[in-house]
Design a protein around this nucleic acid. Structure first.
Lengths: 205, 205
DNA sequence: ATGAAACATGAGTCAATGTTCAACTTAGTG
DNA sequence: CACTAAGTTGAACATTGACTCATGTTTCAT
């Protein structure tokens, strides 16, 4: 028996080319609106106006304001990981990969200023999506560190806390040097930060 | 001439002991309400109910919902810095101070779970207060690193990006091991993270 | 061509809640 | 005691914006 009624999740996937096009425009408009105004100040009418469609059209594709937001978080999470993975591909070793990844991340932030507004606000609007995002990121990171350790590329240590430390570093450097001020280039920031975590603060004689 | 009228900021500071007591209760109630429900789901009636006062009493002490929130951000920012400074006092060198500070921070997060909800949400609700918080934190950090570098305690490098990297590390470790899961003790997390930044990832033979 | 499904429209509904205010009580001073 | 300032109260107001729905239009398989 098929479940019907108010609790059923209606399939809102577009069936025609026109529908897919409209959906794409609504999603892009939503990214803009949420990025500029934040979740709560963002208005559905703001999204539909940007997209050039009527208010009701929004509800042809999404159940609610929160649902678009979640879709956006998933999209951007995926896009970010994709972009970083691309930049890192073919790196000769882990530390080089770290540098390239951080540089690519900061550059990505500059080109997608809505990223923080949306992903960080998910912490309060769609907490599970937020957790999912960082847990996924951390798991990938942890695996990379474990593999590098197994290859003898990096010193022994706990992979998971290290992964979270490195992610936090990236997120804050992205905020400070990607979003807030561009007084250093992504490459400069990456060089300094990776020097910190590869060589360490302790003075050697 | 004294400015009066709608644009003037009325002084809402309590003059009597009763007033100060009520204000304190409202502030504590606000921290609870915002901490549990977030800025937008929090209701003024929720705050006044927790405080055991009437709705109107709130407006005896605050101009608006946003104003209490800002007051709270300032309070918690100050309390956090205070707590960490306390724990670090008398540390023999910078790396020891880093370890003690991080450990104290994670412990503080566990005891004040409303901290992240409020400070991080300020990013969207009171962006200037959020910037102020981290800029203040970063400036203190930068000075500490510069001083340690001058004393020859740590290796040469750029203080400011290093400060932001270390702050980001702390914030994410606090979230993961303070808020989300307590599978490692604050001391364990601090040891691992400080080992990472003091010794570095590069393998030494 | 034609009928049905998909898509688009936007005025109207409805609940939530931040803020105001006029009346009332309490505290402190001369 | 009398007077004033400070503090308290909660019903009423006003706005806002997410979501519904009845109607109209477009697409497309047969």
């Amino acid at each position: 028996m098929t479940v019907t009624g108010s609790a059923a999740a209606v399939d809102k996937t577009p069936r025609t080319e026109r529908g897919r096009k409209t959906l794409r425009r609504v999603l892009e408009a939503a990214a803009q609106e949420f990025g500029e105004r934040g979740f709560h100040d963002a208005a559905i009418t703001g999204i539909t106006q940007r997209a050039g469609v009527a208010l009701g059209t929004f509800y042809t594709y999404f159940e609610s304001k929160e649902e678009v937001f979640r879709a956006l978080v998933r999209d951007m999470s995926h896009a970010t990981r994709q972009h970083v993975a691309e930049a890192v591909r073919g790196a000769p070793d882990r530390l080089t990969a770290e540098r390239l990844g951080l540089e690519a991340f900061i550059a990505f932030v500059r080109e997608h200023r809505e990223l923080y507004r949306i992903i960080e606000e998910a912490q309060f609007v769609a907490h599970d999506a937020y957790r999912e995002h960082y847990l996924t990121f951390a798991e990938g990171y942890r695996r990379n560190l474990a593999a590098a350790r197994a290859r003898g590329e990096i010193a022994d240590g706990e992979d998971e806390p290290r992964a979270w430390a490195l992610i936090g570093m990236s997120v804050f450097l992205g905020m400070r040097y990607g979003l807030w001020d561009e007084d250093l280039s992504p490459a400069q920031v990456a060089d300094i930060a990776i020097d910190l975590v590869s060589e360490g603060l302790r003075k050697r004689t």
